[in-house]
C-alpha cells in the first residue's frame, strides 16, 4: 500500500518536474516569466490529436516538432523585439502570446475539447510485489529521467551548455566575450519546446483529451513548482516540481474522501509556508536576478 502510494507520487512528481524545468530554463536565461509555456504544451498535445490514428511514436515526434517550432517562433516574433525590455514588459508580452495562441487554436482547429483515445499499450499494467504500475507511469518516468538527465548533461558537458549557463548568469558579459546571445536564446526556447512536447504527450495520455485551454493548469503547476524550488536554478526547479507532484500524490492518497476536493487548498497552503520560510526557493542562493 505504502509502496503503491510512493510509486504514484514519484510518477506525478516527475511529470511536474518536467513542467517546472521548462519554466525555469527561460526564466534563468532571459528573466522571462513565460506564460505562453502552457500553450506550447497545448500545441504538443494538439499534434498528438492530429496524429492519433498513426503509431504512437509518430504523434510523439510530431509533438516535438510542433512544440519546438512554435516555441522558437514565439521567440523570433514576440520576445526578440523586446530583448532589452523590462521584465514586466516581457511578462505581459508572454500573456499576450498565450492568449493569442489559445484564441487562434480555438477559432481554427480546436474549437472544442477533442478526445484522443489512449494508446492501448499505455493503459496496460504490470504487478510487481503487489504494486500495480501502468505502462504510462513507466513511460513517464523514463521520459522524465531521460530528458532531465539529458538536459543536465547538455548543460554540464557541451559547448552550448556552458554558453547557456554563462548567459543565464550575465547576458551582457557573455556577449562582451563574443557569445552569440541570439543563438543561445533560440536554443533555450527550442529546449523548452522539447520539454513542453514531453509534457503534452504525458498530459494527453493521462487525460485522453485536448483543448485550447488545457495549458493553464500545467503552466500554474510549473510556475509554482519553479518558485518553490528556486527560479534561477534548474536543479532547484526540478526539485520543486518533484516535491509539488509528490505532495499532490500524497494528499490524493491520504485525504479522506470528503476533503479530496480541497486537495489544492492543502497543497498551496504548504507552498505558502515554504515560501515564508525560504522566499528565494529551496535550492536558490541568495542572489536574485535584478537585471
Amino acid at each position: 500500500m505504502i509502496l503503491q502510494i510512493i510509486v504514484d507520487m514519484v510518477g506525478l512528481g516527475a511529470t511536474y518536474a518536467l513542467l517546472t524545468i521548462g519554466i525555469a530554463l527561460l526564466f534563468g536565461i532571459l528573466g522571462l516569466m513565460n506564460f505562453a509555456y502552457g500553450e506550447i504544451i497545448m500545441i504538443g498535445a494538439f499534434a498528438m490529436y492530429l496524429f492519433k490514428d498513426y503509431p504512437w511514436f509518430v504523434g510523439v515526434l510530431a509533438a516535438v516538432v510542433f512544440a519546438v517550432v512554435v516555441s522558437v517562433l514565439t521567440e523570433r516574433l514576440a520576445f526578440r523585439p523586446l530583448r532589452n525590455a523590462d521584465p514586466v514588459t516581457l511578462m505581459i508580452a508572454s500573456f499576450a502570446v498565450s492568449l493569442a495562441l489559445q484564441s487562434v487554436m480555438r477559432m481554427t482547429v480546436l474549437p472544442r475539447t477533442q478526445g484522443v483515445p489512449p494508446q492501448p499499450f499505455l493503459t496496460e499494467s504490470i504487478t510487481v510485489f503487489g504494486i500495480r504500475v501502468t505502462v504510462l507511469q513507466i513511460v513517464t518516468l523514463v521520459l522524465c529521467g531521460v530528458l532531465l538527465g539529458g538536459l543536465a548533461l547538455l548543460m554540464k558537458k557541451t559547448p552550448l551548455g556552458v554558453q547557456l549557463r554563462a548567459s543565464a548568469e550575465n547576458f551582457q558579459v557573455a556577449k562582451s566575450l563574443g557569445v552569440k546571445g541570439s543563438f543561445v536564446i533560440m536554443s533555450a526556447f527550442a529546449i523548452a519546446g522539447v520539454m513542453a512536447a514531453a509534457s503534452g504527450v504525458i498530459l494527453v495520455a493521462r487525460q485522453g483529451a485536448v483543448s485550447a485551454e488545457m495549458g493553464l493548469t500545467p503552466l500554474l503547476i510549473g510556475i509554482v513548482g519553479a518558485v518553490v524550488g528556486g527560479m534561477s536554478n534548474l536543479k532547484g526547479a526540478a526539485l520543486g516540481g518533484l516535491l509539488l507532484g509528490m505532495g499532490t500524490g500524497l494528499l490524493e492518497a491520504t485525504l479522506p474522501t470528503d476533503l479530496i476536493a480541497f486537495r489544492d487548498a492543502f497543497l498551496y497552503s504548504a507552498v505558502m509556508v515554504v515560501l515564508v520560510i525560504r522566499p528565494q526557493g529551496l535550492l536558490s542562493g541568495t542572489k536574485v536576478r535584478t537585471s
Binding site: P159, V162, Q163, R165, A166, E169, N170, V173, A174, L177, G178, V179, K180, K287
Partner: peptide, 21 residues
C-alpha cells in the same frame, strides 16, 4: 569583474574561447 560565479574557473575561460568561435 562579473565572473560567472556558478561556473568553474575553467569554464569561465572556456566560455570566452567558445564565444569567439
Amino acid at each position: 569583474v562579473r565572473v560567472f560565479g556558478r561556473l568553474t574557473v575553467a569554464e569561465n575561460i572556456e566560455v570566452a574561447a567558445l564565444g569567439c568561435g
